[in-house]
Design a protein around this nucleic acid. Structure first.
Lengths: 156, 156
DNA sequence: GTTTTATATTATAATTATTATAAATATAAA
DNA sequence: TTTATATTTATAATAATTATAATATAAAAC
């Protein structure tokens, strides 16, 4: 983790941004909860545990900054809040998601399944693809076996 | 258009919803502007032209209802507002979008480019795909030719 | 065609998420 | 150190969406 923070620090500096304690605390939360899809509010509450003096607006600004630098990706699963997802190191593209409409769980897919599709889009539509967002909605493996059981958390 | 409204009317009735004048006016706006990606506010303003007494909350409720019935799809391109897009008649899946990061234009792709990918997801992840959201971000054909020229509307 | 009744609408008010502002503080460079 | 710049805090403002309670209405039953 330290290694990764160090790298991000350099990336910030190279664009003349500072790695303030607040930004570092935010990053640490994102790294620790890499599997989750936290909203700004979620991040705020978690950061507050280690740095109680932080303000919500700072978290928003930090997430916005990290988003511009492509360190995190901002996603929206349609529930009215933006969620922030760390991009894997060196990943050119955003990873995909499987959202279960029954239990609300979100699974990540690292593999880039869209290479062929992007080529088609590029060729047939003349559109120069820079990134993508792909989400599947459906029933997860678990819910197929055990029907109807709803998850009670908002930390998707 | 009448034909299509008639069909939706039946669909509503079959689930014991009424086709009120407000709902019909909203539907007509959506049908007339099928190519666009209107926000609730956009729809509201357009509906107001033909039915000035309508309230914003009603538009929201109507869009929500149509969304549940899979007549429209609710999408979010990351600009903080939900947009509503008519589903093509008989389409099982949502169509795809090409969002230009330069001029903000949104192009639609009708073709289902994900059949193969869905098979993989189904097989390798055991996830039963019901629907998908696919958006490509990049530079549209137009902007590749004429660099830097920003569109001034919010009606993507 | 009326009447009836559940459903829908209106006109707010209330929430929720996010962004802007101004004063105070911290940081890095000179 | 000093200085200039970037950042944060605390709060207010904005924007999008949802809830509420009184009223009205579509469509089924008579």
């Amino acid at each position: 983790m330290e290694h990764r923070i160090e790298r991000i620090k350099k990336q910030l500096h190279s664009q003349s941004y500072k790695l303030t304690p607040q930004r570092e605390a935010t990053l640490r939360v994102l790294l620790e909860r890499e599997e989750d899809h936290l909203s700004a509010e979620d991040v705020y509450l978690l950061v507050k545990e280690k740095a109680p003096e932080i303000g919500l607006a700072t978290v928003y600004r930090t997430l916005e900054l990290l988003s511009e630098l492509k360190i995190v990706d901002k996603i929206n699963f349609g529930d009215g809040v933006s969620r922030y997802d760390l991009r894997k190191e060196g990943a050119k593209h955003f990873h995909h998601h499987l959202v279960c409409t029954q239990c609300g769980s979100v699974e990540e897919i690292e593999n880039d399944l869209l290479e062929d599709v992007e080529k088609i889009v590029q060729k047939d539509w003349g559109f120069e693809v820079k990134d993508h967002r792909l989400t599947f909605h459906g029933i997860c493996k678990n819910c197929q076996e055990v029907p109807v059981k709803v998850k009670e958390t908002n930390e998707i």
